[in-house]
Each structure stands twice: as structure tokens, then as C-alpha cells.
Design a protein around this nucleic acid. Structure first.
Length: 435
RNA sequence: GGGGGGAUUCCAGAGCGGCCAAAUGGGGCAGACUGUAAAUCUGUUGGCGUACGCCUUCGGAGGUUCGAAUCCUCCUCCCCCCA
């Protein structure tokens, strides 16, 4: 891939929303540095950050130099354009911890230490903001931008209330956000020759405040580029499940659950996602989409998508396990086949499946299924809920549908006299372990 | 400082003395159809009991009443308008 192909690349992938004139030319002239900001509010990123990460990935692949900016300072303020509330100050220790966690995850995508000229660099704006006094800031920075300019931004306008919306009001702190973020850009421009800031399309206003500052203060030319926010075809929020965020950290979201998330995307979404979230080239993606349409029930598109992302975010081994687990859990596995698998493999299959424990002693006697699932374990919140589910034929025990509320289970029902698979509906599985 | 409006079950939002565990919509869950999709349709959505039923809920604390989410008093919190 040559340097000039970056824009082309993200264009056909549908990752280009807005771009400032001259950006492409700048990228053709020289190896250019660009940055994207990430929130250090947790020690792990979730898939909401994946699109910007891929942007940096393509950027580096194109021979340019990516900067990762950890928003230690801005993260305390809260971006008014986002849904986020104003945040609390993170202490330096957790800030540091989160930064390390994020770097570790990003290392799977970006080269930080290869020795190449375009190695990625991580910076934290807390480092240069923490000692910047308020007075110095309003004198040196605030002076150059008018309130009129700041108020013209959509993110701000929205909060003041326009014809459709009611005024929400915003604090001075939030109002200042774009200036602080703009200053980051100026700082990186002056100290790291960083000429481009990228981000989600909601960041456009903040980014242009930065280029404006650079123009006025440093008399320089900087560029901006944004990527569309990832949406789902049905309009619901991307990246959320009933369990909450889908994290990149395998402790927070198991590789199996991660794989399942992507496997379950709709056709319409998967076509867009495979371009954004995988590195497969145009030709390969075209083929996959074509083949998928020939025989949609094979779900080749989702399987490819899930394989690529799981391998990239976790590992090939994790993918293999997740795949095998999915085949067993959703295939035609029976009590016999489940029993024939060796215990180690069996457990790896269930890694990531919610597990409940019960004492082996309690199993000596026969237990009513209702009691087992509500009183002995908390698989279900109430008996009423469970009864309802059983009436609707939604409960299965060891892959067998069960409607009889008088059903009793004992040791013999447990696989290897230890494990019981409980299914809720078609897709939700729980494991009960007796020990 | 003055005036007005509000707080209801996950959310929005009806109810305004008994028929209210509380309309309707959204969301959730399940079933059918399928492909562990999407769309659609159906059921369900406080707890306990198979069920007639019982228990806990309508911002908080008291009160009126045979009976209150609904009326009264005080308190807390939110919003709007005028100064």
C-alpha cells in the first residue's frame, strides 16, 4: 500500500464522513502524523472505539504515523456533543492504569515499537494540561477564539436550544471543552508536527476548533477527517448487548461472547461492518458478500466477520475455541456427545457461558426444576418468570425442551454427574456445576 | 422575591375515592416464520401460589375514609414563567 491510498482505502470502506480540503494532498507530500483521542475512563476499550482504531490502523498501513491521544484531561470534562455526563476527576493512579490497559489493547492493532519511522506514539493530554494555569489558558488560548465561533458549533447550539429542542443548558466547563481539545491539536502540531486529527463524525466541530487555533496562533495549516458513527440498520445503538458494552478485554467480554456478538449481526449491518472492522481487501469482501447472497442461510458474511474480528482482537486460538463452542452449543449436540467430550475441552467450550454452582450434596436428593433454577441457583429471578417461560416452551435442559413443571432432576441428569446445561430460548445458555 | 406546573410500575405517559398490579406506546423476554439474521405476527412483562387468592408498589411522612395512586396537611426534589 502506498501513502496516497489511505483516503481511497477508507472511502470504499465507507469510513469517510467529512474531510477538510487539502488533506489528501498533504498525505501525498510526506509521511504525515495524525491523532485520534480516546477516553481513559476504563482500563479497556469497547467496540465503540473500534472504528477509530481501524482508522489509525489503515493510516499506519499507508505509511503514516499515528498518534493515540489519551484524554486524561478532556476525559474529566465530558464532551457536550456526546451523551456523556460531566465526569469526575480520575486520580493519576487509575489514569495511568487505564492508559496502560488501552495501550496494551492498541498494540494488537498498531506498531508502537517496531523501530520504524512511523511507529505509533501514545500521548496523554493530562501531561500538558495539568500545569497549565487557568489564567495562562484564557490569556494565551481563549483570546484567539470568539465565543460566537464556539457557539456556532452544533454540539453547543443543541444545548442552548433551537427550534425543535428545549434548552438543556450547559456548564461553562462543558462549553470550554472544545477549546481544551482544540489546544491538544495545537500542542501536538507544535511539538510533534501532527497535522491531522481524525475521529468520529460527532467530533468534527471540536476538531475544527483545533485547526482554527493552529491557523490563528501558529499560523499553520492543519487538517481534519471524520468517520461516520457506526449505526445499526434498525436504529438501535451499536455495541450494546443486554450485558452492556462489548469490551475488547477478554476478562470483561469473553472471546466466545465477543464472537457471538458479531455472528449475530444482521445482513444489512454485516455488509457495512466487514468493510469497517476487517482488513480484508475490496475483492475478498466483494466475494464474501456475493457468496452470502447466493446462500444466505449459511451466514458466510457473519461468520467471516466474526472470524476476522475475533482473531484480530483476541487470537486465532481464541477464535477456534469460540467457533467450536458455538458449533457444540448451537448444533445438534446431545447428552451423549456432550458426555463423550473430555472435561477440559468441555470446560473450554463453556468458557464465557454464565455459570452457576450448586453443592454436590444437594444433588443427592431429587430436586424440582423450579427450585433448582430459582432457589438453589439464580438462573431465573423468580418462579413466575420460569413458569411463564416453560409454558412458552422456552426452557431446555441439556438441549431438551422441557415443559413439565413437575420435572425433577438428580445426579443422573448431569453430564459427567457434574454439569447441567440450561437453555433459555434459542440463544441463551447457562451452565450449572455441581461440586 | 412573585406566580404556575410536576414527581405513577424499566422508560415515556394515562389514571384523579372503590371495577387499579394500574390504560396506551416503547423497551425487555419468549413463541411462530427463518439463517443463533432483519421484518412481521402472537403471547408475556411486581412477588408468592396450579387456581378463586394473598403480599409489596404510584416522591417521603402523617391524616380523612368502610376503602386512597386518586382527597387533606407538612416535607423533599424537578421544571416553566414573571421580577
Amino acid at each position: 500500500m502506498t501513502k496516497s491510498s489511505f483516503i481511497e482505502e477508507i472511502k470504499w470502506r465507507g469510513m469517510l464522513q467529512d474531510i477538510m480540503p487539502g488533506t489528501d494532498e498533504q498525505l501525498n507530500i510526506e509521511m504525515t502524523s495524525a491523532y485520534i483521542g480516546f477516553d481513559p475512563t476504563s482500563d479497556s476499550l469497547h467496540i465503540g472505539s473500534l472504528a477509530p482504531i481501524m482508522l489509525l490502523k489503515h493510516f499506519q498501513l499507508a505509511g503514516h504515523k499515528p498518534f493515540v491521544l489519551v484524554g486524561g484531561a478532556t476525559g474529566m470534562i465530558g464532551d457536550p456533543s456526546g451523551k456523556s455526563e460531566e465526569r469526575n476527576l480520575l486520580d493519576e493512579e487509575s489514569l495511568h492504569k487505564n492508559q496502560e490497559g488501552i495501550k496494551k489493547q492498541l498494540s494488537k492493532f498498531l506498531n508502537f515499537d517496531s523501530g520504524a519511522a512511523n511507529d505509533a506514539v501514545m500521548v496523554n493530554n493530562y501531561d500538558w494540561m495539568k500545569d497549565f494555569s487557568f489564567l495562562a489558558f484564557i490569556r494565551d488560548i481563549g483570546k484567539h477564539i470568539t465565543v460566537n465561533y464556539m457557539m456556532a458549533k452544533d454540539s453547543v447550539k443543541k444545548r442552548f436550544g433551537d427550534t425543535n429542542n428545549e434548552a438543556e443548558g450547559m456548564s461553562f466547563t462543558e462549553f470550554t471543552y472544545q477549546l481544551v481539545q482544540g489546544y491538544d491539536f495545537l500542542h501536538l502540531y507544535q511539538n510533534n508536527n501532527c497535522k491531522l486529527q481524525m475521529g468520529g463524525s460527532d467530533q468534527w466541530g471540536n476538531i475544527t476548533t483545533g485547526t482554527e487555533l493552529i491557523r490563528r496562533i501558529a499560523n499553520g495549516k492543519a487538517f481534519a477527517l471524520t468517520t461516520p458513527l457506526i449505526k445499526k440498520a434498525d436504529g438501535t445503538k451499536f455495541g450494546k448487548t443486554e450485558q452492556g458494552n462489548v469490551w475488547l478485554d477478554s476478562d470483561k467480554t469473553s472471546p466466545y461472547a465477543f464472537y457471538q456478538f458479531w455472528l449475530n449481526t444482521s445482513d444489512a449491518d454485516a455488509e457495512a461492518y466487514i468493510k469497517v472492522f476487517t482488513l480484508l481487501d475490496k475483492q475478498s469482501i466483494g466475494n464474501v458478500i456475493e457468496q452470502h447472497k447466493q446462500n444466505a442461510s449459511q451466514r458466510l458474511l457473519q461468520k467471516t466477520l466474526a472470524r476476522e474480528i475475533t482473531t484480530m482482537v483476541h487470537s486465532a486460538d481464541d477464535y477456534e475455541i469460540a467457533l467450536k463452542a458455538s458449533e457444540i452449543l448451537f448444533g445438534k449436540a446431545t447428552f451423549e456427545t456432550m458426555s463423550s467430550i473430555d472435561e477440559k475441552t468441555f470446560l473450554s467450550v463453556f468458557d464465557g457461558v454464565p455459570t452457576f454452582r450448586i453443592s454436590a450434596d444437594a444433588l443427592k436428593a431429587r430436586i424440582n426444576i423450579l427450585d433448582l433454577l430459582t432457589t438453589e441457583t439464580n438462573v431465573f429471578a423468580s418462579k413466575g418468570e420460569l413458569r411463564r417461560l416453560m409454558k412458552e416452551n422456552g426452557l431446555s435442559i441439556n438441549k431438551q425442551k422441557e415443559q413439565n413443571q413437575e420435572r425433577f432432576v438428580s445426579e443422573g441428569d448431569f453430564i459427567r454427574r457434574k454439569y447441567l446445561m440450561i437453555g433459555k430460548g434459542k440463544t441463551n445458555l447457562y451452565l450449572i456445576v455441581a461440586d
